[in-house]
């Protein structure tokens, strides 16, 4: 049975995501200032997302010599749109905008669009540094996607459903993070990785002068960077229905719990980001395939056996 929100939710969702994104960027600026030993005042940090957006809106766009504007334009647009579509299955409270029967697969499919997006932007610019950035993202993607998919599957096995609302319903008593901590950690890592953010920021790294985004000016940069943050927020928010009990919790209404938990996940990611350096893709690939993938498979096996034993976790 579908419990989707009325269609108005489709209008509300982008606004909500952008609002949370604003908060995340602000928190990131504050955390960066603290890590640097040069505190950024809250007022400056809170105005930062708006100011940067304005700066890029009035800024001039640039087109490279023989750059592929179509690819670049499509790639840039795909990033925020994929983030929005991935968030479709996100229960805002207990009801998502679209309650898809294979919601987890849908989320997975939408978020993988980022691969194409970043590579297209990197390739389309006709710039050596952008090209390196675009390929770095693909190489990284090959590594994080496997543990990520096993993490998704583990949650699905726990609920014996691919419908996100069923996964939330299965956690009425016990949050999945308790019985699948490895999958949760793997998921959090892949959240940062799919948004090529923080420790996984090599595709837009400083060593390649901004990498895939190195040649983007004006609104092109705005759309790309906003898309990246939206992706981070959407994926972080997905951790809530998958592992953190969704809207379940005492005292507060379901939507408030979802918001609080989403902000908590983002806060954890932001705090972690400023404690650690960037991970190099070739090191990560090895670790991800040889350690993380077997670990998440073992996690999936454990959860499967538990599910078999109990005839489901509900």
């Amino acid at each position: 049975m579908s419990v989707a929100l009325p269609l108005g939710g489709s209008v509300l969702l982008p606004a909500l995501l952008l609002a949370v994104t604003w908060a995340a960027v602000t928190a990131d600026a504050v955390a960066a200032g603290r890590a640097a030993g040069r505190p950024v005042p809250w007022t400056v940090a809170a105005a930062l997302p708006g100011r940067e957006a304005l700066r890029l809106l009035v800024g001039q766009r640039r087109r490279g010599v023989a750059s592929d504007e179509l690819l670049r334009g499509v790639g840039g647009a795909v990033l925020p749109i994929a983030a929005l579509l991935a968030a479709v299955v996100l229960p805002l409270g207990l009801r998502p905008v679209a309650d898809l029967g294979a919601g987890i697969v849908w989320f997975n499919a939408m978020e993988v669009f980022a691969w194409a997006a970043v590579w297209l932007v990197g390739w389309g610019a006709n710039s050596t540094l952008s090209l390196i950035g675009g390929y770095r993202f693909v190489a990284q993607g090959l590594a994080w996607e496997l543990p990520h998919m096993f993490a998704l599957i583990t949650a699905a096995v726990g609920a014996q459903s691919l419908r996100v609302t069923d996964v939330v319903a299965a956690q009425q008593g016990l949050w999945f993070v308790v019985i699948m901590p490895v999958a949760f950690v793997a998921f959090l890592l892949s959240v940062a990785a799919m948004a090529f953010w923080g420790p996984f920021g090599a595709p837009v790294g400083r060593d390649i002068a901004g990498g895939a985004a190195a040649e983007l000016g004006g609104v092109d940069r705005l759309v790309f960077m906003t898309g990246r943050w939206l992706l981070l927020v959407a994926a972080a928010a997905m951790a809530v229905p998958l592992f953190l009990g969704g809207g379940h919790g005492p005292w507060l209404p379901a939507w408030a719990w979802v918001l609080v938990k989403t902000l908590a996940v983002l806060a954890a990611l932001v705090a972690l980001r400023h404690r650690i350096p960037t991970i190099r893709m070739e090191r990560w690939t090895e670790f991800s395939l040889v350690v993380l993938t077997p670990a998440t498979i073992a996690q999936a096996l454990v959860v499967t056996l538990v599910a078999l034993g109990e005839g489901g976790l509900r």
Binding site: L57, V58, G59, Q60, R61, R63, G64, V65, S127, S130
Partner: peptide, 22 residues
Amino acid sequence: GVRALARILSVAPPLTNVMPHA
């Protein structure tokens, strides 16, 4: 919409034929 808005607001039309930066 954002792209159209930027078209109106940006101080100048796109800069073309930029050499890649390395």
